[in-house]
Design a protein around this nucleic acid. Structure first.
Lengths: 381, 381
DNA sequence: CTGAAAGCGCTTACAG
DNA sequence: CTGAAAGCGCTTACAG
């Protein structure tokens, strides 16, 4: 009975006659949602029964003023009795709009939802969706391909996330004359996009650490996925690494210097934890850990706590993003704030105006800001 | 230039000629995504140009084997040149399926995305979406009404979340013969649903505290939204409160007892923090704080830290959910685990089989489990 | 105020 | 292997 599920001892069972459900269990009645049913009623049927034209039926739902009150009432009543509603897909086809925004994702939905960055981004994008009274379609890659996912989506436009390598997506979107906006991508000049000053932000935080005297550094970077290794990657991660390199160069350091360790791990708290643990038990302990995302930094802080290493007394830690948690964690995290919600909102706004055919500047650049809190301090002597 | 955005000092600006973007800024070229364009090419046009029937064009895309290789190649090439792709909406209409699952939400997308519970749920549901190669439509209420959102969604079925008061949604879904599954709702007997033993879970954790000798208690409950006050609410929250009441009754306590404080707040970390601060600076300090969600409990822990109150020495804290964070927080949180991901996955599986017309038991009940960690201990004497 | 007709863009038996 | 025809379910000028 206890089929194991991945959250441990929770289990699935057929509902017992218990007090936890709203009512007792039922005998094996046919499930109404799958019951073989007669065909869905159409406008034609309603028209026949009500003794009017299909036009009239359509007007009753879409342009009531054009019908006499009696006719309208009769149609609506017949529709009610028959259980008729206009078919949304037919409506989309004939109206040429879907009232839904598409979010073209670089990863599967589970991976996206594990990442708090996307939650923030979706809050912003969701504000626009809400304001416009639309819906949001999450379109993950199909057979690992973002390109493949484009043709199947019934949307009025796309926000495209994390397109660091264009495999034809931009051309496809254009060919379909589909409005779109690129985010966290390597956007060509003539394509609408919203980006962030990743390079600047990263340089800022690294300089901050350098000024505090840190010279033995560890960088916690994340893999962007299978194809997004350091080589060929040209999105936000590449820009952050470039800012890092730039700042290091100013004091004669580089990613290849023996005092700079560069670790690539998946972007999760647990991975930040493990990597830090390893780093701190090695011969060459850094005095500062530079994480390329807050989630990694917070994992690092956990590990240092566990090891009884004082922050920032012995080791400083910095993040990137300024997730809400960065301000809750102890010590509070020094990090680079990027406007995640604003990014979603601006992308949504740009997409809406593109859909409306309004002209606008194709690029928006959002600024980062260095937030110095408690997790960074002078290098130990 | 620094238009203020809600994440503080981040700001929007037109892209400067900087090094942060992938290339320099461009002159005011027409935006390709909004450029007035000639009509989208159709299958008819491709057929004409290629000198074949529309049938053949369709076969080239959907059933290549039925065409001679040459014909097919010619059609595909013409399509390529013209930039033709089958229109997804037309395809949906004629095929009678959308290849997308709908998630009918009780709140706007921003509110949903702020809640880590939904992230977990979406990980599970996303696994099914991924496995099936489908997309996921997030359908928030339209004009505050879940009912209104139903007719506009082009989906093959709905997972309905948090339908604690049925305002006609179930009837509407049935009338449309739309497959659906209820989650976190007050599901009637003959409607497919997946629920959790909220009542039992809550009773378990309260008994745990009672056995530790706690008799002065504070309950941190959350508002489910405008219409989901304690009265009339019949979903998971009501069941948790019922489990709470049951356990309290066993030692002669109740929600009305002067030693039991009941606080209703929004379900955020900051609200848990504030409420706890208030509770602990009042005359009647509890020895245990029972939060109805982890996020609230974690906020409470933050507040106790700030006040220098020892956990569980002076005050015990418990949560509900077992979010990943519950195991990271210090002290580790005693809580009730509910299988959030499994809930999403089971709901998705049930929906898929409903869509396929397979019969199945209409109810699935998932089990909770009490997870005792460090945040609960004997009541101070 | 009401309706006959055309059309949205495709797919799929069916017939050759 | 290929095509003419019907149909998916609606909306919207257009004409009365």
């Amino acid at each position: 009975m206890n089929r194991d599920l991945d959250e441990g001892d929770a289990s699935v069972a057929v509902r017992p006659t218990g007090s936890d459900a709203s009512s007792g269990s039922s005998p094996a009645r046919p499930d109404p949602s799958t019951r073989p049913s007669r065909p869905r009623p159409t406008a034609r049927l309603v028209a026949e029964v009500a003794g009017v034209s299909r036009t009239a039926v359509s007007f009753a739902f879409n342009d009531p003023a054009r019908l006499s009150p009696e006719t309208r009432a009769r149609i609506l009543q017949v529709a009610e009795e028959l259980g008729y509603r206009p078919h949304p897909v037919a409506r989309m086809l004939v109206r040429g709009q879907t009232r839904t925004l598409g979010l073209l994702l670089p990863q599967d939905i589970p991976q996206v939802m594990e990442n708090p960055y996307y939650s923030q981004f979706l809050v912003g994008l969701g504000q626009v969706v809400h304001r416009e009274g639309m819906s949001l379609l999450l379109a993950p890659p199909i057979r690992s391909s973002m390109l493949q996912a484009i043709p199947y989506a019934a949307v009025d436009g796309f926000v495209v996330c994390g397109l660091e390598i264009d495999r034809g997506e931009v051309a496809e979107l254009r060919r379909r004359r589909m409005p779109f906006v690129l985010v966290d991508s390597d956007a060509p000049d003539d394509v609408p996009s919203v980006e962030v000053t990743d390079r600047q932000g990263m340089a800022d935080v690294v300089r901050h650490l350098l000024q505090l005297g840190h010279r033995r550094l560890a960088v916690l970077s994340f893999e962007g996925g299978p194809d997004r290794a350091r080589h060929g990657y040209r999105g936000p991660l590449a820009r952050r690494i470039s800012g890092l390199t730039e700042a290091l160069g100013e004091v004669g350091l580089s990613l290849d210097h023996p005092d700079v360790q560069f670790v690539e791990i998946p972007c999760t708290r647990a991975d930040g934890f493990r990597a830090t643990r390893q780093l701190m038990t090695s011969d060459h302990r850094p005095t500062a850990i530079i994480a390329l995302s807050d989630i990694l930094a917070i994992g690092a802080i956990d590990a240092l706590h566990d090891l009884g290493i004082s922050i920032p007394g012995e080791v400083s830690v910095t993040g990137f993003d300024d997730q809400p948690e960065a301000a809750w964690v102890r010590p509070r995290l020094t990090t680079v704030r990027q406007p995640m919600q604003a990014k979603g909102r601006v992308a949504g706004d740009m997409l809406i105006s593109a859909i409306r055919g309004e002209s606008h500047h194709p690029h928006q650049l959002l600024h980062t800001a260095l937030i110095v809190r408690e997790s960074s301090g002078p290098a130990p002597t």
